[in-house]
Nucleic acid binder design. Structure first.
Lengths: 305, 305
DNA sequence: AGTTAGCAATAGTGATTAACTATACATCTT
DNA sequence: AAGATGTATAGTTAATCACTATTGCTAACT
C-alpha cells in the first residue's frame, strides 16, 4: 500500500470509471486497474464491484476511501510544513550570549532581528561560554555569541567584531589626566574583576600578567556583573577594565566615571558567532550577524569575513 | 514520498542513529540513509543534523516527523478497516422483498439472521419486483427476494423454495366440500386480485386464463395487500388465491375462512434470491438463504441448489 | 600528532515494482 | 450476431528500492 495507490483509489471512487480515473491520475487504465487489484489483494477486501455498466463502490470500499482521503490530506500537510519550514527565517532561533555582551548587545539586536526576520522569534539565554558551548552541542541552542578563542569539535565560528578594552575609574581619579593607560599600571590599583567562568575575567588578567598572582590588589566579585562592577567603581571601590561597548559613555552618560583607553597596543577581544557545522539555517545566522553589526556598540571594529 | 519513507523517518527520529533505525526497519543502513536524503531533497528541507557524535532532528524535522506519525496512524486505520470489513457478515445488508412475501417471511427471517449474523443488521425495503430490480442494479439494495421468472443483465438468481397456491373462500362457501379446486373454476366466482405491478397478480391470472379478459367476475384492488384481500374474503366479498405461506391456517387461525388446495397439477410460484453478479458478500447471501429455509413458511418446498 | 573506531555517505549491482502498449475478454446494446 | 464499451491480462521497459562493499569524515585514544 503506497500513497500512490491511495490516490488511485480515491480517484476511482470519485470517477467510478477506471479510464477516467486513470486519466485524472495521468496514468494508463491498466496501471490503475492493476494498482486497485493489488490494493484489494493486499487488504483482502473487495473495494469495487466492476460491471460493464459501471463501477460501484462497496460499503467497506467507501469506508476505506474515506480513510484514504484522510491519509492523503495528512500527507499533504507534510509538504505544506516543508514549504513553510523551508525559509530559514521562519521559526524560532535559540540564541546564546555570554554575560559580558548580553546587556549591551541584546537591546539593539532584538528589534533589529525582529525587523529583518519578523517570523523568527529569538529565544535567548545568557550564560558562561562553557555552558553555552554545551547547550550548543546538545542542540539546546542554535547560535551563540562568544569571545574568541573558541574551539570545539563540530562547531564553526565566525568573527564578527573586535572590541578594545578600556580602563574605568572614578571621576577625579589620579590617572584621569592621562590620555591612555599602559596595561602594566593595572597592577598598581585595586582592580575589580568578574568571577571565574567569565571569559572576560581571564582576558583582563592576560592583559595584565602582574595582576595574576592572586596576591595583588585586585578583588574578585563572584556571581557579579559588569554593571555591578561599574557601580562599585563609581563609588570609589576601585578601578576596572571593561570592553568598550560596556565602558564608553553614551550620550548623557555617567559623570561619576572616567573612561580611558589603553596605551597601544590596545588590548581587545574578538567576538564571534558559533554554531554547529551541521546547522542548516545559515540564512538565520547571516541575519544575526548583520543585526549585530548594525547595532551601535561603542568602539567596536567589524571584522570582515 | 512513500509510506515506507515516512516509516524510516519516524524510526530515525526515535533512534537518532541511522544504523539502529535501519535495523528496526529491517533494512540496511545505506537504504535508510538514501531514503532520508531523498525525502529531504523532495521536501527541500533539512530534517536531521548529522554529525559523528549523533543525529539531531531539526525543528522543522520534528514537526514533519509528528505529521508523518499522524499519516502512518491513519494509514494503519485502513488496514484495520479492511480487517473489520473482511467478514461478509459484518456491516448492514440491504434486503429487498416483494410485497406478497414480506409480511409472512420477515417476522421469521429477521430474528434468524440476527442470530446467525449479529453484526449484520438488515435494512429492508418492500416493493414491487420491478422497483426492487432497479434498486438492486443501482446498488441501493444488495439482495432481493422475488418470484421467478426474473431475468436481468448483471443479476444472478438462486431459487430458494416453491410455494403452492391456495384457494381462499369464506367459511361455508359452496366449494367447501371439495377437497381440491380445479383452476378453471376460479372463473366462476368473484375473484379478488392485487393491483397491477404485483407479480403475484399475474401469476394468478396465468393459473386461470379464463379470468384474464378483465370482463369476468374478478375485481382488482389497486394499492391493496394480501392481508386486505383476506379480510375481504372473510366478509364474503369474494374468493381469492393466495400463496400457501399467506393462506394456510396457523394454529389458532381464522375460523371465518376456508382454504383449499388446487387440483393437481398444483400451481405454484418459485421464490428466489437475486443479487448483482459482482456482489462480493456471498457469505451474507448464504446466511439469508439459510434463514429463509429455516423459517416456518406454511406449505413451501425447498429447492435444492 | 598519528591512529583507530564509529558512523554516515557514496558507488555499483541486482531484484523488485510500476509503468507503458497491445490485446484479450466480458457484457450489454443495436 | 456484431459492435461498442470497459476492464483485465500479457509482455516489456524503465524506474525504484535495497543490498554489499567501500569511502570519507569526525572525534576520541594512545
Amino acid at each position: 500500500m503506497t500513497l500512490t495507490d491511495l490516490r488511485y483509489l480515491v480517484a476511482l471512487a470519485r470517477e467510478r470509471h477506471f479510464g477516467h480515473a486513470a486519466e485524472r491520475c495521468n496514468v494508463s487504465q491498466p496501471t490503475l486497474s492493476v494498482a486497485i487489484k493489488k490494493l484489494e489483494d493486499e487488504l483482502a477486501v473487495t473495494l469495487f464491484e466492476r460491471s460493464a455498466a459501471d463501477v460501484k463502490i462497496t460499503d467497506i470500499g467507501a469506508r476505506i476511501v474515506a480513510q484514504a482521503e484522510k491519509v492523503l490530506l495528512e500527507a499533504g500537510q507534510i509538504k505544506e510544513l516543508a514549504t513553510a519550514g523551508r525559509d530559514p527565517l521562519s521559526g524560532p532561533l535559540k540564541l546564546g550570549v555570554i554575560y559580558t555582551i548580553g546587556p549591551y548587545l541584546l537591546p539593539h539586536l532584538i528589534p533589529r532581528v525582529h525587523a529583518a526576520a519578523p517570523s523568527m522569534p529569538l529565544l535567548i539565554q545568557e550564560n558562561y561560554t562553557a555552558r553555552l558551548a554545551e547547550s550548543l552541542k546538545r542542540g539546546d541552542l542554535d547560535v551563540i555569541v562568544v569571545a574568541l578563542p573558541f574551539e570545539e569539535p563540530g562547531i564553526v565560528t565566525q568573527a564578527v567584531y573586535d572590541e578594545p578594552f578600556r580602563v574605568l575609574m572614578p571621576a577625579g581619579h589620579a590617572w584621569e589626566d592621562d590620555a591612555t593607560i599602559p596595561a602594566a599600571r593595572l597592577a598598581e590599583a585595586p582592580l575589580l574583576l568578574l568571577g571565574a567562568g567569565n571569559c572576560f575575567r581571564d582576558q583582563v588578567l592576560e592583559v595584565c600578567p602582574l595582576c595574576r598572582g592572586g596576591e595583588g590588589l585586585q578583588r574578585t566579585l563572584e556571581g557579579s556583573s559588569l554593571e555591578t562592577i561599574r557601580h562599585m567603581v563609581a563609588t570609589g571601590a576601585g578601578i576596572t577594565v571593561l570592553p568598550s561597548s560596556a565602558a564608553d559613555p553614551l550620550p548623557g552618560g555617567n559623570s561619576l566615571l572616567t573612561v580611558r583607553p589603553f596605551e597601544a597596543p590596545e588590548p581587545f577581544r574578538r567576538i564571534a558567532l558559533a554554531w554547529r557545522v551541521t546547522y542548516p539555517r545559515s540564512g538565520a545566522i547571516d541575519v544575526i550577524r548583520a543585526a549585530i553589526l548594525g547595532s551601535p556598540l561603542q568602539g567596536v571594529r567589524p571584522v570582515s569575513r
